[in-house]
Nucleic acid binder design. Sequence first.
DNA 1: ATGTGC
Length: 490
Amino acid sequence: MIPTGEATAILPAGNHHSPVKVFGNEKIRATFDDLCLQQAINSRCAPGVTEVVLNPDAHCGYGAPIGCVLASPTHIYPGPVGFDIKCSMSLLQTDVPADAMIDKTIRRELIHAVCRRIPTGMGKGARDVPKSRRVEEKTGVAAMTDGASSDVLAALGVPVAWADRCEDAFHRGHDGSADALRQRLYYLRQGKTFSRFRSTVQQLGSYGGGNHFGECEVVDVVDDNESRQIANVFGLRDQHVAFLSHCGSRGIGHRLASGQFKQLEHKFDQWKIPYPGNDKQLVYAPIGSSEANDYIDDMSLGANFATVNHLLINALVLEAFQEIIPGTTGNLVYFISHNIARQEIVDNRETWVHRKGATRAFPAGHHALKRTPFEHTGHPILLPGNPQAGSSVMVGLPGAKESCYSVNHGAGRALGRRRAIRELDQKQIDASFDSADILSNCRRYPRDEAPAAYKDFEEVLRSVKQAGLAKEVARLRARFVIKDSSDADD
DNA sequence: ATGTGC
């Protein structure tokens, strides 16, 4: 490792590659285990890869670490997008004053109102919603091929203007058309793997399990003039209630991703192509090949599903607030992914930037933000920390050029799920939520999701700030949390 | 993360 200011570099074997750029202070670097670093080096040495960035929240992932950026102008890498295609964050700002959340009864009613509309847990589709909220199959198909189009949003009762608050409101097929996606979906539906498509469509408007969540927040805007001005542009309201959501493309994204992993693995074996770093999980396809086209189409189908899923969730959350606190209004602050590959200009070259557990961070004046609401501020960056340390809204700084215009995607796991379930004390976890006055839909908070299972969020943010990648605009203080409530333990 | 899947 070679220290270069706040960034550190790992040099892969041989000298024809630029190093992996590591953003993390000494404390954070101690959290990277050998496999995570090996995955970063494998990724850096893989064909066509021009840059790899390791973020402070990095830990082992599928092929590449979760918490990394991989750039390639010539190759697409499904592993460094991952299973949960376009897993994302979204934030809804309401006009409800923070004081309304003092009352535990109101918060309990809100929890029920949200959970009635938005299922959590494995396999759960939006089954318990009123008939008017059931997703028609043709709307589900249009969601996947067209993304957050006006027609799709109107059909689902989502404010059409929210599409302007998305990192990408829609993803097109490999040739830039939605038609390519229509054809690909039609083809996939002929096969057995999409036989349960009808129930898959009902997963629009659901959270899923694992680290996915919905969280009611109070907004604390950072107390300086610049932050207040940026918060205004973002639509954040200091000392008012907001709602943060974390979820992705559910079963369909998983299905599409795992199908691609298998198919590409099979072709590598058939053609005796060596795997980068001897790791099957780092299969790739050269841009322009039919394999790359198929992957880009499948990724886009999953990504569009995730986008519409988030927007529907936000509309349902707003509806839940309106049921309990009549007259509530709300607006989407932003929707931004941390598991996606997208085309960006890197060093004057059209490049596929894969962010795996990493968040885009375009600062003020970035060319891609022209004619968007965030042209003069940079777009919002939504970073979940944990319910007790809070979550963060940040904005990119010019220094983010060094990290491929990316920051971390949250705190990052410190303990594996099994270890967390074994080592963390249930009573202590629940008592800590009680004393912080944070309510939850779970009788017992999942141990593998406890704040102690994650890295120190403050330390992670410090690394981002010290490296000059982004600055904090607001902190979000949790008032209640919606998680998968099925008791997975004992 | 996940219909824990020929």
